[in-house]
Design a protein around this nucleic acid. Structure first.
Lengths: 228, 228
DNA sequence: CAGTGGTCTAGACCACGAT
DNA sequence: TCGTGGTCTAGACCACTGG
């Protein structure tokens, strides 16, 4: 059998035995290298595949760690992130990265408005950064948005402060890697795999409420969808 | 800037310029190595990230190629795979890998039946293998299933031959890598990233019709979901 | 300070694909 | 037969983390 597969199987075994548990640190690359009489290149080959598999993740220059349980999320419901996380035993947190109004946007197909809010946020579960989002919405319609607490649910602010309710939404979900600027915010290497979710949300009249782009660490989330 | 990022950017540029188009073969690893005065390890670092990004894929010992357009698929509708593919300009195909009846299954939670059909199929778009699925259903309820053409829509067979209609379904979607046996069927390396979709489908009475596990090449599919 | 992962060099052998 | 990607060796230097 291939050497990197042997190493991979070895880690698999440590995981299934319970020798390694959620959040634990793996043996260092150099230790594994010695143990298998191999080289770091080959050890990393195994570790990178385990990462793609969603079982482990790395923290730059700190080590490799066992991935915690995934958050189960249904994109077709109006989610309250905090509530959802709490139900599943996580402590959630949100931080605003930036907020500005932009006038030359390329979302003409979505918004007739010339000026949009552009809000960037990052979210974490149990202190672990797992998601980054860009939120775009009509600046005139949601005038003074920044005066509210942008760390919580935007949906709730829209409902309570602006009498705007989301009744419909479309998601497009694909697998890709974090863009470089997002990777930096989430303290990941550029090239880290992720789940990209583009959400368009509409009100009762069928006009756009907001347009969101979410990047989830692929090993932090599992999506559920119900049909019919 | 990092060398492997330079190489990655170079390929990005070839793609956006249109120098490289859908299905085209990339320059060989050794050619890129010379061009950047580097080594194959570093070139592969760049190529593997482009693969994770979904932009290119490799065919063993044939080369690296530009990924075709993704199939857009809504898991919450009753899909006819062929129809969907045709609408989007693909030629679809299905092949049965194996079919057997199993009696000691670990789907007790889903099926009270002691014996199940276990059908394995692979599907391709434009001759490119993109999906593998395991289908489980009650052997007694769908007695003689194998006598029908299993290359087409199972949903249709169930409706027409067994008066069974799916009215409800639950999907769980996550990112992982192809299991080794699946990778072999799809002619991929073990460790290739994929989208794993587990679908449970129910009839009017709320009992399980079938239980499917689908593995999609992550760069072959984009999912859409509508809510409310 | 020592230990870690991130990046990189300069080679090598192999099995398989195309021809 | 020759070119390709797949795997592997045996080192190296760097920037950062943690004690």
């Amino acid at each position: 059998m291939l050497l990197y597969q042997q190493i991979r199987n070895y880690i698999h075994q440590l995981l299934s035995e319970g020798t390694l548990n959620t959040g634990d640190k793996l043996p260092s690359e150099r230790l594994l290298q010695e143990q298998f009489n191999s080289t770091r290149i080959t050890v990393r080959e195994a570790l990178l595949r385990l990462e793609a598999e969603g079982l482990i993740y790395s923290q730059t220059r700190r080590g490799w760690f066992v991935t915690p349980t995934k958050l189960k999320w249904n994109p077709a419901t109006k989610v309250n992130f905090y509530e959802l996380a709490k139900q599943q035993g996580f402590v959630a947190d949100t931080q605003v990265i930036s907020h500005q109004e932009i006038s030359n946007h390329d979302l003409k197909a979505e918004f007739s408005a010339s000026t949009l809010h552009h809000l960037q946020r990052a979210r974490s579960l149990d202190e672990r950064l797992v998601m980054f989002e860009d939120i775009f919405c009509d600046a005139a319609r949601f005038d003074g948005l920044a005066e509210h607490n942008l760390n919580g649910s935007i949906t709730q602010i829209m409902a309570n402060q602006y009498a705007t309710n989301v009744v419909n939404e479309q998601c497009a979900i694909s697998v890709t890697v974090l863009p470089d600027d997002v990777a930096q915010v989430l303290q990941k290497n550029s090239g880290t795999p992720c789940l990209k979710v583009i959400r368009k949300r509409f009100d009762e009249l069928g006009s756009s409420v907001d347009y969101n782009i979410e990047y989830w660490l692929h090993n932090a989330i599992e999506m559920t969808v119900e049909g019919h």
